[in-house]
Simulated assay, not measured.
Amino acid sequence: MILGIIVACEIGFWVLIALGLAARYILRAPRLGATLLVLTPAVDLVLLVAVGADLRGGGDASLPHALAAAYLGFSIAYGHRMIRWADARFAHRFAGGPAPRKAYGAAYARACWGDVARTGLAVAIAAGVLWLLTRVAAEGADVTALTGMYGILGVIFAVETIWAVSYTIWPKKAPAEVRGAAAT
């Protein structure tokens, strides 16, 4: 059941973003678009309440419960960025906005370090939600699936950090056609 709620929340998140951007750029209704985009955190709240209620009701923690905590952390930490990413592409496609530009070199490395900070925030939020869920779980419930997620969160943060270090040492080079266009 919890896995289904996680999937429904992920779908709901993207549906709200798509509807918000469609209202903003296709229907030319910026207030409606903004309202729909502002509702995206409500999806996270629904998920948190559902998972907490399931554990409080006596259910043993399982991998989907732990994934819900990770989803919440990453949704909160990366949600605004994902909306900006989608907004730039929607504006380009439907409103004549500028084409999104890819970063290379030092700019890409800086973006990677920004992701390290966001991932650190996501991991901290997910860890806090895991802790909270272990506290609301019914007396005697098995919460090892929740506590086992801490190590996975550490690995995710370590991989993100290694990624940033690698692009700091070996910067991402622009394709030849981009380098050639910049030289002219």
Rank of each mutant, 00 (worst) to 15 (best):
P100M: 05
E139D: 12
A181R: 09
I169R: 15
A141F: 04
T144S: 14
G73Q: 07
I17W: 05
V7F: 15
A124F: 13
E177W: 15
I11R: 12
S62T: 12
H92P: 05
G105M: 04
R179L: 11
W163V: 11
K102I: 08
G33D: 08
L63E: 10
L132K: 02
W113S: 10
A107C: 10
A99E: 14
V46H: 04
W163P: 14
R24K: 11
A42G: 00
T134V: 12
A66H: 06
L130E: 05
T144W: 11
W85F: 07
M1I: 15
C9D: 15
V123E: 00
W85E: 04
H65N: 06
G148V: 06
A95N: 03
D60T: 12
L21I: 07
F90P: 04
A69Y: 02
A69G: 01
R118E: 15
V159W: 00
G151W: 02
A106R: 15
A66C: 03
L45Q: 00
A158T: 08
P171Q: 02
V38P: 01
A126C: 02
R56D: 13
A99C: 13
W131D: 08
W163Q: 15
P100C: 07
R135E: 08
T40L: 06
L37A: 01
L132N: 03
S166N: 12
G140W: 06
G148D: 06
H92M: 07
T35Q: 05
L21W: 05
I169V: 14
A137M: 12
G12Y: 02
K172C: 09
G148E: 08
Y78E: 08
G140C: 15
L19R: 08
G59R: 15
I2G: 06
L121M: 08
G4W: 06
A117R: 11
V155N: 03
Y78R: 08
G96H: 09
I6F: 01
G140T: 09
F94M: 04
A77C: 02
V143Q: 14
I17D: 07
V143C: 15
L45P: 02
W113G: 05
G180T: 14
D87W: 06
I26L: 05
V15F: 03
I156K: 11
Y167A: 15
A158G: 06
I17V: 14
A68P: 04
L45W: 01
R84V: 04
V15L: 03
D115R: 08
I162S: 07
P175E: 05
G58F: 13
F157V: 15
T119E: 14
G105W: 04
A18W: 00
F13Y: 10
F90C: 08
W85M: 05
I152F: 08
M82D: 07
P100K: 09
Y25S: 03
A117K: 10
K173C: 06
R135G: 03
A69E: 02
A77G: 02
Y78T: 14
I11L: 14
